[in-house]
């Protein structure tokens, strides 16, 4: 009993952690489900059918492909723009800093429905109501990922001292050499983290996308659609794969940094 009391907080914390995994367990389980009826969402029997035929509904894979494409493009855009801005905010001083900070902060503080409806109001007002689709989704995604990139890269940069860069300069490195050989590799984990965050934000977004997508369908929009009329179990296959991929990436990164820390010490 004293052991339980001593470790009470840790045990409670682990319970909360277990709770966060319950739906994941259901997603994995349902990916092997052999449904008796499309309309009732429950586990009826085991099958590998869903894994063997992931694209049974071609429109799902089409939506998935589009989401990946939009995710990659908006990650690229947001990461470049956001990293540049983060460097400006940490390393440079200029007038209007606080305004810039505010403009970058506000998109994160606004509810998605407000961001989405503002953009829709703009697109419709500017006469683009008929052209809603891939490009308007991409514009919106770069917009809302941008702030998160700035914040992530900025915190990495702010935590760095410039002693190594000064040392490089003392050793006659040119500013460009210093940047590419010293600064960039040090900031890179932050940029990579920001890019991963961007991709998952973009891939997962529903509310803003739904308002600005016109007739284009992304993966979350597809799931939303089928939720009303019967869910194909293949969406759980996608969910499981997403979970596994992210675990591999994140745990891999963690092991890598551990190994490096060990090598350094």
């Amino acid at each position: 009993m004293t052991w339980v009391r001593k470790h009470l907080v840790l045990i409670l914390g682990l319970l909360v952690l277990v709770y966060t995994f319950i739906p994941i367990f259901v997603v994995v389980l349902m990916s092997f489900n052999d449904p008796a009826s499309r309309l009732i969402y429950r586990f009826d029997g085991f099958t590998l059918h869903n894994w063997a035929n992931p694209c049974e509904d071609p429109s799902m894979c089409e939506a998935l492909g589009r989401s990946i494409q939009i995710g990659l493009l908006s990650t690229l855009g947001a990461t470049i723009l956001g990293t540049l801005a983060a460097f400006a905010l940490v390393r440079h001083s200029f007038r209007g800093r606080s305004v810039a900070n505010l403009v970058i902060f506000l998109p994160m503080a606004a509810p998605e429905i407000v961001l989405g409806s503002s953009l829709l109001a703009l697109f419709v007002g500017a006469g683009f109501a008929g052209q809603l689709g891939f490009w308007t989704i991409l514009i919106a995604h770069i917009m809302f990922c941008l702030s998160f990139v700035v914040v992530t890269v900025r915190s990495r940069l702010a935590g760095m001292t410039d002693t190594l860069e000064q040392a490089a300069a003392d050793l006659y490195a040119t500013p460009a050499q210093t940047f590419w050989r010293v600064t960039f590799p040090l900031v890179f984990p932050g940029i990579l983290g920001a890019a991963l965050l961007s991709f998952s934000l973009s891939f997962d977004d529903f509310i803003i996308t739904n308002l600005n997508a016109g007739n284009t369908t992304t993966f979350p929009m597809y799931v939303w659609g089928v939720a009303q009329r019967g869910v194909p179990m293949q969406v759980n296959v996608v969910g499981t794969v997403m979970f596994l991929v992210s675990v591999v990436i994140v745990v891999g990164g963690e092991l890598n940094s551990r190994r490096r820390a060990k090598a350094l010490s």
């Binding site: 529903f206 993966f219 979350p220 799931v223 969910g239 499981t240 992210s246």
Partner: peptide
């Protein structure tokens, strides 16, 4: 980790 799985799923 769990939150990298689709919000809707």
């Amino acid at each position: 980790a769990p939150f990298f799985t689709s919000f809707l799923v």
